[in-house]
Nucleic acid binder design. Structure first.
Lengths: 109, 109
DNA sequence: TGAATATACTGTATGTCACACACTATTGTC
DNA sequence: GACAATAGTGTGTGACATACAGTATATTCA
């Protein structure tokens, strides 16, 4: 038998899970690199583990929702990501779906 | 390379995934059986496949968020579920977390 | 009447996907 | 040398979708 705290935490985890992609896409209208994403989302109350983000970014790039570019002129090499055209479209649709879903949930609570 | 429709569908799936438990819990302030749950949620714009719901109900019962009772006096045996005390508490917390999350997401969109 | 079909209802098994977590590795900076 | 910045990998677990199985009642229709 699990304890209550753990059950809740787990469910919250599941809740936030699906919103991660949405969060990430929303930030990439302007180019950002992984580490900066982690930080900027953190300030907005959305925690994402680097070990979660990096594979996510790669996956989104493979799906062609993102484009990336290495920036090597600075002191440390950084990989910048930004939304592709397809990414923008998908992001838009996802936003709409979120609003829909939100409406449904609010209605039943 | 996947096509756009499929990518979006998949992401939407992920979005709704975490909200399933919340939806189900919200309906079980009054006793309901599986099939009635599927239908009542459907009318509220939340689709859940029976094959998804039944295992979910059993899982929630195992976690002691739900209690169940067979109703055998009717023409067909039905298994009624309702929130336990623990379930109500968890539901409350989950609601709050949802509202929090919602605020965060709305802020970044 | 009786057979076929639909529908209500509960359940199981398997596959896939995605994240958390813990880890490695590198390069600057104080 | 320690710490921050930055990127990455690999494994395990959890959860849902999908498809399938099965029973009982109601309905249709020849």
């Amino acid at each position: 038998m699990e304890d209550k705290r753990q059950i809740v935490d787990n469910l919250v985890l599941e809740l936030r899970r699906g919103t991660l992609v949405l969060s990430v896409l929303s930030q990439l209208v302007a180019p950002q690199y992984g580490y900066s994403l982690v930080e900027s989302l953190e300030t907005k109350g959305i925690h994402i583990d680097p070990g979660t983000l990096y594979p996510l970014l790669r996956r989104l790039e493979k799906q062609e929702l993102l484009q990336s570019e290495w920036e090597t002129s600075g002191p440390k090499p950084r990989k910048y990501y930004i939304l592709s055209v397809l990414g923008k479209e998908v992001y838009q649709e996802l936003c709409n779906e979120w609003l829909e879903l939100n409406k449904s949930i609010m209605a039943i609570l």
